[in-house]
Amino acid sequence: MKKVAIVTGCNQGLPDNLWKEYEINVLHFPVTLEGKEYRVRETISPEDFLAKVKASKSFPKTAAINVERFAEVYRKSTAEGKSIVNITMAGGIFSQPTLDAAKEAINKVEGADVAVVNSMLTAHPIGLVILEAARAAKEGKNKDEVAKIAQDVASKSTLILALPDLEYLHKGGRIGKGKALLGSLMKVIPILIMRYGTQAIEPLGKGRNIQQVNQKMIETIKADMEKSGAKKIKALIAAVADNPEAVKDLKEALEKNIDCKEIIIGKMGCEIVHLGPGGWGIGYYLVK
């Protein structure tokens, strides 16, 4: 039976060591700032890129991964005798071109055996989907089984973001202006949520500091668990490079309030473009 290779974009928040351990094929999204192109976590560190963003007057932008780059990875894995599960973020306003390219590239590579899984999500929860898929692949499950597991985890997953400066998400076109809740006179941190299948990032509430925001995240997770009857969760938490305190506080709050089967402390790269300085979030999925 053929081994399964996992292919994905870089916007999923897993830390470097897990990328390596599970031999995940990560394709970095091209990011441009002031006309210059970067690949965060490949050609530049998140810290250095964030410093450039903060110093710049303009907003960074991401671009799609094109057909040729997908084809290249497919070609390599096919040559190694592997079948492929490619896990992408949601289409629509998130990245329809990337999703299309992931599918189109299959036709470019002769003999490629690829399943494209649309996670219907973005950022943190994709990390969890990939991790479970990669573990299944390592255990020797076949392409269809791995794809099914990925689909299943995604369908139980949710993303909650806390973004001190919503301008980044708005400028990146990931949230409508009406929903952006811009320009409060009070210092507040907007909290947003993306549930599987909604294809949209919706406002959830606001908090005045890290503790309040994390408390609201915990309350939301608890309510989800109660509603579905889940006993535990698996979570991935990660912040933009300048806000390790938020991650530390959220981890403590999670451990104190919720039965977590696993907590992964992740790393943000190209996500900075949409999260903006100080942004953090959690991806979680419900476990029986």
């Binding site: 009406g178 809740l181 507040v188 959830l204 509430g205 606001k206 609201k216």
Partner: peptide, 20 residues
């Protein structure tokens, strides 16, 4: 009032907002 507004969700229903 401001504390209540922290939990105001303009996209939510009036019932959900009343509760939160």
């Amino acid at each position: 009032g401001l504390a209540a507004l922290m939990d105001y969700n303009p996209e939510g229903s009036i019932e959900e907002n009343k509760e939160s």
